[in-house]
């Protein structure tokens, strides 16, 4: 039985096994390579996507639980947005492996707190690891995208 989902607004049917990881379905069946595999164990957030608006690590999600789910990957975020511009302006990306997950964590955070405090930003991103930037620039980008100062 195929699994039918909406991925970035488009209906998609996957014929992979229900035990397949959503991560592999996105990368291999849908060719959406923006979702990265870091640890494969739920620790790093490189594979983070939104499922029905909630941030999840796609390496921990079996396809069998995705029937009729609404999934947003980094490819589904607007190409030009306050968030994307702030990431560029603040230098919040270096090697870029963590960036898709960071953008989705930030999107989930901003949907809930339009003007997050530093504490809320830290919490919202606490499941996403970055080995390059030291986080400060990422926090600054999110604060700036929310219309706040960039010097958090």
């Amino acid at each position: 039985m195929p699994t039918t989902m909406r991925i970035n607004g488009k209906v998609f049917q996957s014929h992979s096994a229900p035990t397949a990881r959503l991560l592999d379905v996105l990368r291999n069946d849908c060719h959406l390579k923006g979702t990265k595999e870091g640890c494969g164990e739920g620790e790093c957030g490189a594979c983070a996507v939104l499922v029905n608006g909630k941030l999840v690590n796609s390496c921990l999600v079996p396809l069998g639980q995705m029937e009729r789910a609404e999934i947003t990957t980094v490819e589904g975020l607007p190409e030009d947005s306050a968030l994307a511009r702030a990431f560029v302006r603040c230098g919040a990306t270096q090697c870029g492996i963590c960036t898709p997950g960071m953008m989705l964590a930030a999107t989930a955070l901003l949907a809930e707190h339009a003007h997050p405090t530093l504490e809320e930003i830290r919490w919202g991103l606490s499941g996403n690891l970055c080995r390059c930037t030291g986080y400060g620039r990422i926090y600054a980008a999110i604060a700036q995208a929310a219309g706040g100062p960039a010097d958090v």
Binding site: T19, E41, C59, L60, P62, Q65
Partner: peptide, 27 residues
């Protein structure tokens, strides 16, 4: 039995030889 899968999906990844052949998804 699988619920949120946050323990089982990790276990499955770390110990593929222990993968069961039937899952009951209670979600």
């Amino acid at each position: 039995v699988i619920s949120g899968g946050t323990d089982l999906m990790v276990e499955r990844h770390l110990a593929p030889e222990r993968r069961p052949d039937a899952w009951l998804d209670i979600s």
